[in-house]
């Protein structure tokens, strides 16, 4: 039971990192960027190549910076010209970006599974009588540190303040001298970097292959559950989705076998539908107030 929960928290913290990327972009530009899965894969692939040269830890940092750079370029070329156009159009463009970047990244993966060269693999550790995989702990700790850093960034730095201001009211932020273009770029860069780190952790143990990108889409239920515009909600939503999925993986076979094998893979979407029926704006999202 505790093992299951810890596995859930480990996977959930990966979803949380991805979800934070979605929410950061959403808060800045009011767009859901469907390009996140491709950034995640690109990050994992970059680590798998760099780790052979620089070692795992430096490779993660370099890959995050590299993918953040790629995200910046893409934002400048494909997204910035579209400012002022309907959000749906921009979302579909990001879908196009995703398809292109993913094919390129998958080209580097090839037909085999690529290992990211992480120090944990599938090795186990026993804590207080519970045997768990080390990588779950690594994921959780890394995510906790990153989330802490992000919250400090948003709370205590000029750029964090600028991003919060732009998210709150773009025109007023512009009038106060905030460069909203910089905020857009920064949000894409941050989201790209977070996705790259998340990708690396997805790749620990089992490695990355052509189909790994599907995992990134589980962050979408996480942000819907947490509320599209809530950073805290993204973290809690991600962890919740991870735990539910892990529980389903362990117990659904005994409790409800009629749901079929691999039902755990789709539990995030089921949770999302249920939450949406009860609270259409997620658990922590702001309800949109419409003036008529």
């Amino acid at each position: 039971m505790i093992e299951t929960l810890i596995r859930g928290l480990g996977n959930g913290s990966v979803y949380a990192l991805l979800a934070l990327g979605f929410v950061i972009i959403y808060k800045a530009t009011r767009v859901i960027s469907f390009a996140q899965p491709s950034f995640m894969i690109a990050g994992a692939v970059a680590v798998s190549y760099l780790a052979e040269i620089t070692g795992f830890y430096l490779a993660v940092v370099l890959a995050a910076l590299l993918v953040a750079g790629v995200a910046l370029v893409i934002e400048r070329i494909a997204i910035r010209p579209m400012i002022g156009r309907p959000v749906f159009v921009i979302a579909i463009i990001s879908l196009g970006v995703d398809v292109v970047v993913r094919v390129v990244a998958n080209g580097f993966i090839g037909t085999d599974v690529r290992q990211v060269g992480d120090p944990w693999g599938f090795s186990l550790v026993t804590l207080g009588g519970v045997t768990i995989q080390q990588r779950w702990i690594a994921m959780f700790v890394a995510a906790a540190v990153l989330v802490g850093l992000l919250f400090l960034f948003f709370r205590h730095t000029r750029y964090g303040l600028a991003m919060r201001a732009a998210a709150f009211d773009q025109e007023t932020a512009l009038a106060q001298g905030v460069s909203v273009g910089m905020v857009f770029a920064l949000s894409w860069g941050l989201a790209g970097g977070l996705a790259a780190i998340a990708g690396t952790f997805v790749g620990t143990g089992q490695g990355v292959d052509q189909l790994t990108w599907i995992i990134a889409l589980k962050a979408l239920p996480a942000i819907i559950v947490g509320g599209l515009d809530s950073l805290g909600g993204a973290v809690i939503g991600g962890l919740a989705i991870g735990v539910v999925e892990s529980l389903a993986q362990s117990y659904q076979g005994d409790v409800a076998p009629w749901l079929g094998q691999n039902f755990a893979v789709v539990t995030p979407y089921v949770v999302m539908l249920v939450v949406l029926l009860v609270r259409p704006y997620g658990l922590f999202g702001t309800p949109e107030v419409e003036r008529v």
């Binding site: 859901i32 979408l220 819907i224 079929g260 039902f263 789709v266 979407y269």
Partner: peptide
């Protein structure tokens, strides 16, 4: 109940649920 991108994500979830059902 939903509009815009919330709806896009829900319909995306539908594809995954459908794929699971049809595979099983």
């Amino acid at each position: 109940r939903l509009r815009g991108l919330y709806l896009a994500i829900v319909t995306l979830g539908l594809v995954f649920l459908g794929e699971h059902i049809f595979k099983e």
